[in-house]
Design a protein around this nucleic acid. Sequence first.
DNA 1: TTGACATATTCCTATATGGGAATGTAATTT
DNA 2: AAATTACATTCCCATATAGGAATATGTCAA
Lengths: 121, 121
Amino acid sequence: MARAATTSDVFNAVAEPRRREILGLLVVKELQVGDIVALVKLDQPSVSKHLRVLRDVGLVHVRRNGRHKLYRTNAQGIRPLHEWAGTFERYWTHQLNRVKERAEAKMKRDLESKDSAKENS
Amino acid sequence: MARAATTSDVFNAVAEPRRREILGLLVVKELQVGDIVALVKLDQPSVSKHLRVLRDVGLVHVRRNGRHKLYRTNAQGIRPLHEWAGTFERYWTHQLNRVKERAEAKMKRDLESKDSAKENS
DNA sequence: TTGACATATTCCTATATGGGAATGTAATTT
DNA sequence: AAATTACATTCCCATATAGGAATATGTCAA
């Protein structure tokens, strides 16, 4: 079998760098497709397809304005990702603490060995 | 062209549900491959391949113990993801506030129209 | 209605997997 | 050394894109 469909999953949707870029633009300001095309270096059809994926997973909203379509990031759609990653936070802080502790223990050892060297001189 | 290589990017690496599952196991406790195979419902080669991807992007560490290999999640590898998602936090809280404000404004309107109905009775 | 503009979708192709099966490799036991 | 155990890698195949080109759809202007 192959990989799961990008369309059905926020994690897959943001796996694409250009889509992350687009999300970053659209969270600041509502933009029409042409603006996005101008900002990211992609053809219009590609942009439309990325927007389609983002829309399908609920990461952007669309609104029609005349013949333009205004897209906007739905920031709340990113929360599941943030929360998932957040479950690892206690582990990485713990790991950082251990690194720090080891560094301090080593510094202490080094100082002591210097002292003993001094005593032996 | 096709999609970017999973191997070279943390975002792509965690796009795979089984890999997220494995990361969740290995962050709690160092496990050998056989344990993982038993816990997730995958064949050993598949698990090894997922571990390979995770290792290539630095999301897990390996350590050999006799003929076993002990894997452990490198929680710090998940920070970039958490931080990227975190840049959207101010926007989703803002959006939530707007929803709340609208709800409160509506409730106020409803109450006032009830009052005016009372006056007209 | 016709023409122009803004997007979306479809068709096509090269590439990247993910799983299954088979095989290779390293370390341990007998 | 041979057999065994624990993993890793390779080969094969079906599927899922991502981008390019062409085409379709929708909206507004004249």
